[in-house]
Simulated scan of single mutants.
Amino acid sequence: MFSWDDIGVFLALYRERTTGRAANARGVSQPTIVRRIAALENDLGLALFERSPTGLMPTDAAHGLYASAQRIERSVCEFTAEVDGLTGAEVNLIRLTFLDHFEQLLIPVLRDFRSRWPRVQTQLLASDHIYDLARGEADIGVRGRDRPTSDELIVRQLPPSGWTIYASAHSSAEERPRAPADVAGHPIALVGGVPATLPVYLWLEEFASSGPPPARCNNYRAIKSLVASGSVLSALPCTIGDGDSDLVRCFPPLEEWDVPIYLIGRRAILRRPPARDLFDSIAAHFDRHPELLMGVR
């Protein structure tokens, strides 16, 4: 009969779609993933995945089982947390995820936390990858845009992220727009993917149809480099633009371009004092210094 580990392998393959990535997610070897999923399919009498040029594709049976497998996963996480609470087990590792330009903002918090909890290791997951806290991929996260609604999470709203238009600091004041209406006619850069739907980029997109063809970038780092070179103007969060000596604001951040920011914690992990202390410390830090996220206005 199958076990929880088999269901964990199924979930990893369903989410990652290759045996290599699933092996990394589970912390096991690739042959182990292949062997365990074959054994699970044999036990169930169902084909769960089909091979394709792009990886493993879930079958209709896999789609049908996914929601139930997720519920089992969450129950296991809750059960483990309850056992830790009853046995007095200490949290000695807290996984903190945030966008990769937030790490400098958190240094004072992490320094003070380490002085209070020297035995607790903080693993920083700074990446554009969205870790799923509800299913236990991380413990505490700082996220933008959409407020999570899962019962497994505790959510606190932080000050919003401020955005404005930046130019090269090496350009003259006469070359820069002084108000939003002045941006028309300047070469601009836009970002692709999900960030393209942020209010400021939707606003910039309006200029793309009437001005020079925009440069298209796949991340904020590429946009920052183009702006610093003096070839384009573009929008960046104040958390990136204000700290770069090669960039200069064209005008102050506008409230209509603000992006909501949320602090998220796994409810089970926040029952433990070190994790709750870190969560509350991050919230208090940004409450005391909203300009870190919003930019000085």
Rank of each mutant, 00 (worst) to 15 (best):
G136R: 01
T19V: 12
R176F: 01
G241N: 08
L110F: 10
R26F: 13
A181Y: 10
L198R: 12
R147N: 08
L106E: 09
R297L: 14
D242Y: 09
P160A: 08
F98Y: 14
R176V: 04
R95D: 06
I72G: 12
A134K: 02
E82I: 06
L226N: 06
S52Q: 06
T18F: 02
A126Y: 00
G8I: 04
L65P: 09
E205H: 12
A268I: 01
R145V: 15
I223K: 05
A25P: 00
A284H: 08
A22Q: 00
V91Y: 03
P199T: 02
E255A: 14
L56N: 09
L106C: 06
G20W: 10
A25E: 08
P58Q: 08
R119Q: 11
R71K: 15
R74A: 11
S68Y: 14
I7M: 11
S229V: 01
Q123A: 13
I240T: 02
R147L: 13
Y14K: 00
P187H: 02
D132S: 08
Q104S: 15
A23G: 09
R267Q: 13
L44R: 03
I37V: 10
R26T: 13
I261P: 11
R135N: 15
A196P: 04
V248S: 09
E255I: 10
L99A: 12
V120S: 07
I130V: 15
L236K: 00
L106F: 04
H289S: 14
L292W: 02
L93S: 04
G185A: 05
D84N: 07
Q70M: 05
S225I: 10
G230W: 07
R116Y: 08
L105H: 12
G20V: 13
D139H: 08
E78A: 11
L46R: 14
H101I: 02
L202E: 12
H285E: 05
K224A: 15
I107W: 10
D280Y: 10
R51D: 11
E256L: 11
I269P: 02
W4I: 15
T164P: 03
E16N: 07
N218T: 12
P252Q: 05
W203T: 07
R145W: 15
A268H: 04
I140G: 03
N218S: 14
T32Q: 14
H285F: 05
R288Q: 15
P260E: 14
E174P: 05
L44G: 09
R176I: 07
T80Y: 07
E41P: 04
V109S: 07
D182P: 04
I33L: 08
L153A: 03
L278V: 01
G8Y: 13
T97Q: 08
